[in-house]
Design a protein around this nucleic acid. Structure first.
Lengths: 110, 110
DNA sequence: CTGTTCCATATCGGTAACCGTAATCGATTA
DNA sequence: TAATCGATTACGGTTACCGATATGGAACAG
């Protein structure tokens, strides 16, 4: 069951968490380590080697922008904020999630 | 907007479509080419070089099993069916989708 | 039967993402 | 001034994604 969760994570859940991150960023700043902790508390696991490059990439995509917090060192904490473009992406994804949900969830149709 | 969709697809939508495939397989046989067409009709695009390895992988994971249809050639049409294990995975994913939806969709909470 | 077209899957080579682990760095505490 | 803590970066290996091309059988034309 542990290996199974790992497969599901790689194939599918990671994508869900990206949506989660965008949504989270729409409500307040997002910090890498917080996400690591939050997911772990829910029984999941995302590697730092996955999360941080992912955040960088989302910034490169123009969905997030980052601000270095206090002491401006190379390894200082970064807060990520949703951009306007990121907001558009999130809006789009909300619809896709709703569609998927309606499709696969019986109750949604009853 | 075309490039944007490509990024969103790679990052996130592909994962959604995997759930879609599992759900589809729970209601009847799934054939690769059908999925290619279906997604294209909805304005999306998945490369054959992505879809077919993906189906093979899901079979390797034990989520799907395949049957070669008529003439048993190397390139004959394959129909994929959901396994018991795949059904468990789908059940698990339904809950995750529901959670994600409740989190990001305002209406869901009202 | 041969050739052609159509449906469908497989394969290939390059690029990018994922992952665990180790390194790094500023701030706080001992 | 050494040790720990919070947090990010970097590295090397593995795997996934992708567009394009190759392959293979079926059905139909002639």
């Amino acid at each position: 069951m542990e290996q199974e969760l790992k497969k599901i994570t790689r194939e599918i859940l990671l994508g869900f968490w990206k949506v989660h991150i965008l949504h989270h960023a729409s409500e307040g700043p997002v910090v890498g380590q917080w996400m690591l902790n939050e997911l772990q508390q829910h029984g999941y696991r995302i590697s730092p080697g996955t999360l941080y490059p992912l955040l960088n990439r989302m910034e490169r995509h123009g969905w997030l922008r980052s601000e270095v917090d206090a002491g401006a060192g190379l390894r200082a904490r970064k807060s990520y904020y949703l951009t306007d473009r990121g907001r558009d992406v999130l809006r789009f994804l909300r619809e896709r999630v709703e569609e998927l949900r309606n499709e696969i969830n019986e109750e949604a149709r009853g």
